[in-house]
């Protein structure tokens, strides 16, 4: 991947992280940890892979993304704002009464392809979208992002069976493997491991990637696009809370908003990172 492009993506990702923190802080609630762990992934998808159109969000042939781990809506909203679907400043209205940025993704928000948040359901919906594409010979692709805790839901495996059975090679499921869920480590709560072997056993082509390395994401997604006849699962190894030092790998930041002091600290870190990146760009 071109170094300048990587730098540009890092800048987008940094702004998206600032949007996440801004949103969760002003909402006084929300899920920063798992939002930060998918900030790079959503940056990569929305700025390199996906054909989406902020001035025509409902374009029928667009690529689609279903955020199955819907509690990380702040990441999706900030990515859509960064892409131009609505102003980044709107993140400050997240979860406010009367605002359109609901606590979990809502289909009426520009750029949001599906309401989600009840875990395990988004991947089924993504299967339906991919099936519609196959049925009509459309060329769009469908992405769905799952949590590693989320895949404890049985519906995920119903969907996994379905996608393989119908050879949905226009579907890519990304499992955000940050290793933590609300009650603790996924391996302590009720382990879904081994994740790659499970998807393989269900008939999926599986790749693994470093969730915070754009070159690695690019390598894997490009390879994934060449797969035919079966759906693709990308297990991305990520750090919960990535990009804000005191939130990294801390399960306590799964669903907690920062206080004023923590907010300032987080924003200062991100602003500093952003100026560093901009200086290099």
């Amino acid at each position: 991947m071109d170094e300048m492009l990587v730098r540009q993506l890092q800048i987008h990702a940094c702004r998206i992280r600032m949007g996440i923190i801004d949103g969760v802080y002003h909402a006084k609630s929300g899920h920063p940890g798992g939002s930060l762990s998918i900030a790079d992934l959503l940056t990569y998808l929305y700025f390199t892979r996906m054909h989406v159109y902020p001035d025509n969000p409902d374009f029928a042939e667009r690529d689609r993304l279903v955020l199955s781990k819907g509690h990380t809506a702040p990441a999706l909203y900030a990515a859509l704002a960064e892409k131009g679907f609505f102003p980044m400043d709107e993140m400050k209205t997240l979860r406010h009464i009367g605002a359109r940025l609901q606590g979990h993704p809502c289909i009426t928000i520009p750029g949001v392809d599906m309401s989600s948040g009840s875990l395990g359901q988004g991947i089924s919906v993504a299967c339906g979208m991919a099936l519609a594409g196959k049925h009509r010979n459309d060329s769009y692709r469908v992405y769905t992002v799952l949590g590693d805790g989320e895949i404890e839901e049985g519906q995920v495996w119903e969907a996994a069976m379905f996608a393989a059975h119908y050879g949905l090679d226009n579907l890519t499921a990304i499992v955000d493997n940050n290793g933590l869920q609300i009650d603790g480590k996924i391996t302590d709560v009720c382990s879904p491991e081994p994740i790659p072997a499970k998807f393989e056993a269900f008939g999926w082509r599986v790749f693994e990637a470093d969730a915070h390395d754009f070159n690695d994401l690019d390598r894997v997604f490009r390879e994934a696009e060449r797969v035919t006849g079966q759906p693709v699962a990308i297990i991305q190894h990520s750090v919960k809370g990535k990009g804000v030092s005191f939130m990294e790998n801390q399960v306590s930041w799964h669903g907690t908003a920062p206080n004023a002091e923590q907010y300032e600290k987080a924003m200062d870190e991100l602003k500093e990172a952003l100026s560093r990146l901009e200086a290099q760009a």
């Binding site: 029928a60 689609r64 919906v125 339906g128 979208m129 519609a132 059975h165």
Partner: peptide, 20 residues
């Protein structure tokens, strides 16, 4: 969809969201 009604309803939702 096989014996998997939860997934079937989700698949139906996705088909409808894509215009079917």
């Amino acid at each position: 969809c096989g014996i998997a009604e939860a997934n079937m309803m989700g698949v139906a939702a996705g088909l409808a969201a894509a215009g079917m």
